[in-house]
């Protein structure tokens, strides 16, 4: 059932976690190759949140859009209800730049990869869930990549407590949200020798917070990403072994 939290006295009560601890992720599920006409597809769920991603290409595109040296990435995000607006455009822009960062775009010049994302159910962390779905769909489509990414959202709750992977009620009660994406392996073409600690590929925040809390959330997301990465590798191995048999 979809929680119907909104601003009001009930939201705080709803925001208390009963089924898991503050630093526990929701159950992850990943299904691949659901769509027959797409070159690759995946449905990624985190608890009740579920996002379907489809990849088309690399294929020909309009002469106006193509690039002579690289493959162009186009992203379309469809919300569960209503028409896409500026919020979806922002999500599209973030996902596009993440995909452009990991795909070997120089291998397919003058082509385009189309990524279509449909939000199936929204129970918080839609952007993280969409990024994970896209990452899984890219593997399913067999697009050459030098990296893959995973994403996790965490929230700063009133009273300076932090929770990872908030659901919709917690998201609405939260003072600030940080969604970040990390890559799943360490080697990087523009490998930076100066880079000391673990790094993030993308960050998106909402809400005002002290800088220290922000850095805590980024670090928490990074640890969460390691867990999600383990799951995503396991899920990919299982589905690929299943295919070859």
């Amino acid at each position: 059932m979809q929680p119907t939290a909104g601003p009001g006295p009930s939201s705080e009560a709803l925001a208390k976690r009963s089924d898991r601890t503050e630093l526990q992720l929701r159950v992850l599920t990943c299904e691949r190759s659901l769509l027959h006409r797409a070159d690759g597809s995946a449905k990624w769920s985190q608890g009740q949140t579920s996002v379907l991603a489809a990849i088309y290409g690399p294929r020909l595109t309009f002469a106006k859009k193509e690039h002579p040296e690289t493959c162009v990435v186009e992203v379309l995000v469809r919300p569960k209800t209503r028409l896409p607006g500026p919020t979806e455009r922002q999500t599209e822009s973030l996902i596009r730049q993440c995909v452009e960062g990991v795909v070997l775009t120089a291998m397919h010049p003058r082509t385009a990869i189309l990524v279509v994302i449909q939000v199936v159910q929204n129970d918080g962390c839609v952007m993280a869930c969409a990024l994970n779905a896209v990452a899984a769909a890219l593997v399913d489509a067999g697009i050459p990549m030098h990296q893959n990414f995973v994403s996790v959202t965490s929230a700063l709750m009133p009273g300076a407590s932090v929770v990872i992977d908030p659901d919709l009620a917690e998201e609405q009660a939260a003072e600030a949200l940080v969604c970040s994406a990390c890559t799943t392996c360490r080697s990087w073409p523009e490998a930076s020798a100066a880079q000391k600690g673990p790094a993030v590929l993308a960050v998106y925040t909402r809400g005002a917070m002290p800088v220290e809390d922000y850095l805590t959330l980024v670090e928490l997301n990074r640890q969460g990403c390691e867990r999600v990465a383990q799951f995503s590798v396991m899920a990919a191995e299982k589905s690929l072994v299943g295919k070859s048999r």
């Binding site: 990087w188 790094a199 922000y214």
Partner: peptide, 24 residues
Amino acid sequence: GRLIGQLKAGGRAEMDIARLQDCI
């Protein structure tokens, strides 16, 4: 002195936490 937002929308390189702090 609060952080209102930080947006890094992917790209061809990652940034570690120290770099994000430098940006702040």
